[in-house]
Design a binder for these strands. Sequence first.
RNA 1: GCCCUCGUAGCUCAGUAGGAUAGAGCAGCGGCUUCCUAAGCCGAAGGUCACAAGUUCGAAUCUUGUCGGGGGCGCCA
Length: 587
Amino acid sequence: MQTLEALVKAQFEQALRVVVGKEGADPMVRLAGDERFGDFQSNAAMGLAKQLQKNPREIAQQIMDNLPDTSLFEKTEIAGPGFINITLKNSVLAKRLEQMAKSSSLAIDPDPKPRHTVIDFSSPNLAKEMHVGHLRTTLTGEVIARVLEFRGHSVDRMNHVGDWGTQFGMLLQYIYEHQPEVLQNPESFAVENLEGFYKKAKARFDEDEDFKNAAREKVVLLQSGDAVATKVWQAFLKESLKHCHLIYDELGVRLEDKGESFYNPFLADVVKTFKDKALAKEDDGAVCVYLEGFQNRDGEPLPLIIQKKDGGYNYATTDLAAIRYRVNEQNAKRIIYVTDNRQEQHFKMVFAAARAIGWVPDDVELQHIGYGMVLGSDRKPFKTRDGGTVRLKDLLGEAVARAQEVIVRNKEERGQDLSDDQVNDIAKKVGFAAIKYSDLSHNLSSDYQFSWDKMLAMDGNTGPYMLYAYARVKSIGRKGQVDFDQILKTAAINLDHPTERQLAKVLNRFGDVCETVGQELRPILITEYLYQLSKAFSGFYDKKAGVSVLEAPDQDTKNSRLALCALTAAVLKTGLGLLSIEVLEEM
RNA sequence: GCCCUCGUAGCUCAGUAGGAUAGAGCAGCGGCUUCCUAAGCCGAAGGUCACAAGUUCGAAUCUUGUCGGGGGCGCCA
């Protein structure tokens, strides 16, 4: 089904075609800035007035006179300098909701131009344990993947893990030294505390010159393909990835692991190709690619180094190899990187280099999505009390523990009948929802201040509130012993009360939101929408301001209101699902 | 020094394809409950949109400059 905004827009586009006399004039249809003005507004007349040398209100009148199907509108009127305020008929809103209700996909059409998309996100360094710094990329990447899939795109979720580099020499040497049995039997390698393991190895590396030298030798050994070193290295990677996937599974994140080392065989050719095409040259022993528009601090051209003077490769080389692989082997038409925004310049340069050498056809889009830092209450990067890195595992554990306190307290205060299992399940979902929602409800590009109290608050724009809103809707179904699925199939909706209409209007916008998010890849648009939806529902359902559902005056009205409930539940569940937040039937 | 980014209510944040009286939550204030989950709803209050100039019928939004925060700037990722 065409989205609501598209429906209105199409009307005004046609009218403009007549008024302006040619195609393509932007009708500037927006949601009404103020509810009192109606549902939508068109701001086109003022701009055109100048162009056509006419009075803007006159043009607005002409536009209105040429609307092809006025039966859609309750009223359209000119206001102020030449705004056209648009109010849709209740029946239009109602009919569309009925269509949504009867559709398995909420009548949301897939993107007419599906593109195979590679999303590179999460991608931790396997030498260490995942920490709070991986939160945003992991959550955001997953949401983007879900939204694009929902819009009908196929998606490869790539975990471009750091599984190569000098720190692995250190870790290998530590295993050689302290767990020699692993050399015989790599399968036996297991480590409970990965972070502790890294720290111990690092301590040895820093304190002991012999260890340091031995670690460097292990790097060389590994690079030369030594069988034992390779086995031990692989055993370590496997163990580290196991730790990651425990977290991914808990978060509901799916990822395909393909580490940096996967691209090792291609790196020499990357450098050779750049040299052959004269796009790279040696400078101070390093192989550099110079790209237009990049300068260093002295105003000189800034190179993208693809081979170090010691002959080694760096992440630029790997990223270039990965782009080529993703385009050629994975057939990506769009490649999205979700990393913190400090890497913006790096990706700009890598993208420019990949384009320059012709590895990325014009119809393939490269996109870096940067995000800001997670800050503590002191506005400095979020750390533990003693200044250490916050492990992701601990962060999630704390979220659940804190949620549990709240749930138990509420249970006691309200005398709720919840089993221990239910309390545990609720605490887990509420805790995760709190973390995810607070992250996703902030603008990606800016830093955001992490606050347990705010994210776990049951009121306001929070994850727990959203879960509560859903549970409250579902409870109506239980109370009235009605099957929402059944209600949806036979929905006949009437919108008489203002709160019904308001709810209907917000429900109608879901398609627009999905479309916009599919283009702009901004999870915050979903959270803002869902919050508006739950507010609209609260108003609809409120004892004083809203309507009674189960005690509606007649059966038709009751069914109509139940359908609004069922649809609200469906949209909330779908929307939260896009955010990778699992709903609770009861809380 | 150059580049990027941010500066909106006491606090946390929305709002940048230019649009009407700049929004929400929290905190604080005033109401609402014979309980369809009040974890809610309604209302009032709260702003020189960092500052200055410019473009425009119209600027939080675009341009320029200034101030302030954060980040980046040749072999880490």
